[in-house]
Design a binder for these strands. Structure first.
Lengths: 142, 142
DNA sequence: AACTGTAATTGGAATAATTCTTGATATCGT
DNA sequence: ACGATATCAAGAATTATTCCAATTACAGTT
C-alpha cells in the first residue's frame, strides 16, 4: 500500500510537470537519482537506489518511469554492446567513452562547429534522427 | 548424426584457416553467408540461412561460430539499441546508418583523413580500442 | 588405417534483461 | 465526492544469449 499522506521529505527542485510529462512521486525520485549521481546507472541500479526513499517501488515501475522520461526527451538511454541499458540526464548531443579498466563511462562532447556530415560519408538523402557514438578503451597517464 | 563423408558441395574460396582460426565446415558456411548477402543478419537469420546447406546445424553453433569469427577479427558484431546483435563482414572502420523506414542498414565510411580526436572532446589520456557509431533516420529523395 | 588428445558441435536447460498482464491505487476534472 | 483515466505493483512471460554435458570431428602420431 502506498501512502497518500503528504510526503514528509519532498524532493526539491523537480517541478510537477516536465516536457508535458506529469512528474509523479516515482518519476521525480528516479529523475533525481539520475541527476544527483551521473554515473550512467542501469535500471536495476536505479531501482536499488530508489528503494531508499520509496521502499515499495517495483522494478517494473522503474522501467516504466525510465521509459516515460526517455520518451519525453527528459533523459537519454545509452546502450553498450548488449549490456543492460544505462540512463543519462545529459541532453547535450554527446557520445560516451567506456573505460574498460575501471568501467567508468565518460560523456564525450563534440568539438565546437563539428558537423557529422563533414566527417561521415552518409548515404545520399540521409536525414539523421538519432546518433549513438560509443568508444571503448583505456585511460593512460598523459 | 553428422556425416563424415567428403562434402559433395564444397564451399569455394574460403580457406581452411583465417587469422589463425581453423575454418570448420560450419564456420565456412556462416562466413560465406555473411559475405554473400551483406545485409547485417542476426544470429537467427544466419541460422535459418545456414540450414539450407547444413540441415543439422544448431543455433548454439551459429552463436559459437559467430563469436569465434568476431574474436579473430574476421567479422564484426554490430548492435542497435538493445536489438539482437547483427553481423557484418566489412572490416573497414565504419559506422552504420539504420533507415527506420525500410529497416535497411547502410555501412557508413569515414571521409578520408578524418581523425576522431579532431571532432570529439576525448578525456585526456584516452586510448581508443573500439568505436561504434550508429545513426538512425530516414532516406529522403535528394 | 587405428589411436589419442583436443577442439568443435549439438540439443536442451539455464540465465538475464526487459516487457506484458492484471488488479489495485492515485490523480484530475467535474 | 464521483467517475474517467493514468499510474503503479507484483509476478508471469518473453527473448536473446549463454551454459552444460554428451557426442562427434579433426590433426598428429604411429
Amino acid at each position: 500500500m502506498v501512502s497518500n499522506a503528504p510526503d514528509p521529505n519532498p524532493i526539491p527542485d523537480i517541478p510537477e510537470e516536465i516536457a508535458g510529462l506529469r512528474m509523479t512521486r516515482q518519476r521525480q525520485e528516479i529523475y533525481r537519482i539520475l541527476i544527483e549521481q551521473r554515473n550512467h546507472p542501469t535500471a536495476n541500479e536505479v531501482f536499488m537506489r530508489a528503494k531508499d526513499r520509496l521502499p515499495n517501488i517495483s522494478l517494473a515501475t522503474v522501467y516504466n518511469c525510465l521509459e516515460a522520461l526517455v520518451q519525453h526527451g527528459i533523459i537519454r538511454q545509452v546502450n553498450f554492446e548488449r549490456e543492460s541499458s544505462r540512463y543519462c540526464p545529459n541532453l547535450r548531443e554527446h557520445g560516451h567513452f567506456h573505460d574498460a579498466s575501471t568501467g567508468v563511462i565518460h560523456d564525450v562532447d563534440f568539438k565546437p562547429g563539428v558537423n557529422l556530415a563533414d566527417v561521415l560519408d552518409l548515404p545520399p538523402g540521409a536525414v539523421i534522427e538519432d546518433i549513438e557514438i560509443t568508444l571503448r578503451g583505456k585511460l593512460v597517464a598523459p
